Simulated scan of single mutants.
Amino acid sequence: MYGCPPPRIPSWKSNSNCCSCPHPKISSWKSNSNCCSWDGIECDEETHHVIGLDLSSSCLYGSINSNNTIFRLVHLESLNLADNCFSSSQIPPTIRNFPKLRYLNLSSSGFSGQVPSEILQLTKLSSLDLSPSIDDMFLNEELLRSLAQNLTGLETLVISYINISSTVPNTLANLSHLTSLVLNSCALFGKLPFSLGNLRRLIYLDLSANNFNGQISSSFANLTQLTYLSLGENHINGTIPCFFGNLTQVATLGLSSNQLSGPIPSSLGNLGKLTVLDLRFNKFQREIPESLFNVASLNRLFLAHNNLSGTVEFLKLLKLPNLKRVDLSGSNLDVITETRTMNASSIPRLEHLG
């Protein structure tokens, strides 16, 4: 079986009690058959080299080290070990043995410790997901800076729940091909970097649950391809810039649990594809702009715990055809129904309006 790993690859076992696994792939592997037919394995049709290995959600458990036979698959272009239980193993430095690798997903697999610098040698990567299943993985500022200098072909970068404890290096702007950037829960601090505005291909941006402060950078006006933007659970202040109304592709906008103030800009009514608007736990003032009641795509509207005032006509909410959940609690708003006026604070959550 030219190009196939030994039958004992991988050296882990499958344990259904370890994690959720609807279909543990290695349970169907048979050592007396061609491994290119095994579930989760992809081979090159001409050379028969193993070029893809997908063992995600296979309930694999046990340690993984540099001697594991998986690191002999030097022709791999795709490796997915997500959603397994590797006993707090560190990512082995032999990860460098995959010079052709384009896709690497090690998320939610129990890895811990320092992310190895050898990952910088995977210069062909277009997608990298290192999000751990436990909050015990570290990546220092220098490695993040080097990552942005070496892996310039990245289109997807997900390193959430990894302790970085630094500012965002300006070198991140080198990743000009990025369409998805997720850096949530990384203990990042400082101002939202102006350089992020150079990532004009971004479709998905999640910087939530960090310690960013200051105002939203004006460079975000360049991110006109965004469909998902989450900056919630930070310490961002100031107002929502009016240019947010020009981000017309945005479907999800999350700015909750910050220190944003001033009025909610009426320009948000220009977001004709908006399905989720979450502005909870801020300091917004004045009335809800009328323009929001014209966004027919809205499915969830969360404005609770602000300093909003004025009245909201319940019938206007009912006229939004897709609206399912509304939270206006903890504010000074009055909700007018057909028969009476109620303070929004007395209505914890209005759900299932449609």
Rank of each mutant, 00 (worst) to 15 (best):
M1I: 08
Y2N: 13
G3K: 01
C4W: 07
P7A: 07
P10Q: 01
S14C: 07
H23Q: 07
P24W: 03
S27C: 02
S28C: 00
C36T: 10
E42Q: 08
D44E: 09
V50G: 01
I51A: 06
I51E: 03
L55K: 09
S58Y: 08
L60G: 05
S63F: 06
I95V: 09
N97W: 03
N97F: 08
S108D: 12
S112R: 10
V115S: 11
S117T: 11
P132L: 08
I134Y: 05
I134C: 05
M137F: 05
F138N: 04
L139Y: 11
L144A: 09
G153V: 11
Y161Q: 11
I164G: 04
S166W: 04
P169F: 13
T179R: 08
S185L: 02
A187F: 08
K191C: 10
L192A: 00
F194D: 03
D206Y: 00
L207F: 06
L207R: 00
S208C: 02
F212M: 01
G214D: 02
S218N: 15
L226A: 03
L226N: 01
S230K: 06
L231H: 01
H235R: 13
T252R: 11
L260M: 12
S261L: 11
G269W: 05
G269V: 06
L271F: 04
G272R: 14
D278R: 15
F284G: 10
P289M: 11
N299D: 13
N299C: 09
V312H: 08
F314D: 00
K319H: 12
R325T: 03
L328F: 11
N332G: 12
T341R: 12
S346H: 05
E351L: 06
E351M: 04
